[in-house]
Amino acid sequence: MELWFREAHTPNVKLSIRVDKQLYSGQSEFQRIDVFDSQEFGRFLTLDGYMMLTEKDEFIYHEMMVHIPMAVHPNVKDVLVIGGGDGGVVRELCRYPEIEHIDLVEIDPQVVEVCRRYLPFTTCSLDDPRVCIHYEDGLRYVRTPVEQYDLIIVDSTDPFGPGEGLFTREFYGNCSKALRSDGIMVNQHESPFYQEDAIACQRAHKRIVESFPLAKVYQAHIPSYPSGHWLFGFASKKYHPLRDLDEVRWNARKLSCKYYTTMLHKGAFYIPAYVEELLKNVESAD
């Protein structure tokens, strides 16, 4: 028997992964949730048919979302994670003892429930006493807090479907308001490669630039995502991602990572010329 999961990365490009078996399929109030086992990528989670994470390469995404800002900001105590019901970002955050409180805002309780059951490798820290889970629309949640967080991590789905509100000007503006005066926001920034994704990427950057004094992007290679070339946004009110990187301090922590190093940190901000061009176009508009 041949069973394949296929995701269209564009109308003309597909990625197929041979599935060993399907472990879960359900429809929540917001989306369809599926979990599969595969030979090549191990266990993987899809939402509405879009790849969210695989056992084999999730470390890249989650390490890059968390360790980059943590190696820059000298004193992170309060963290807000928006989206990220799979727990991967929280797992990496919980490795820092100085973090006192983590609010995780996930719109879909069923995602957390399914991940807890099938993806223990990412949900393992969700019961950490510092973690508080709120089942709420992220856009709604950030309306209220004012200068309450040191770090906001936006672990959203794609800019269409339930995650659309997390790519808007009003969302980034509210995040800026919810951060303290030296706060940092890191966000999942889509891929710059295929035409439609590149437009979404450019729009997101434009809106972040409008909301923060400093906005940079950095990259990682994530094999299971469209084109494999993925971007993250680093937006901040004060700290520069390279000038304020404290390599000695971070390396003294002796955290073992599979992807992140402080060397790679520096390299990740050196982006290809065509991506620089894509982003510069919207920066100069202001």
Partner: peptide
Amino acid sequence: REIERLVSSLSEVRR
């Protein structure tokens, strides 16, 4: 979800 966008935008317009 569109209602949330409207409310959040109004909140930002005021701020």
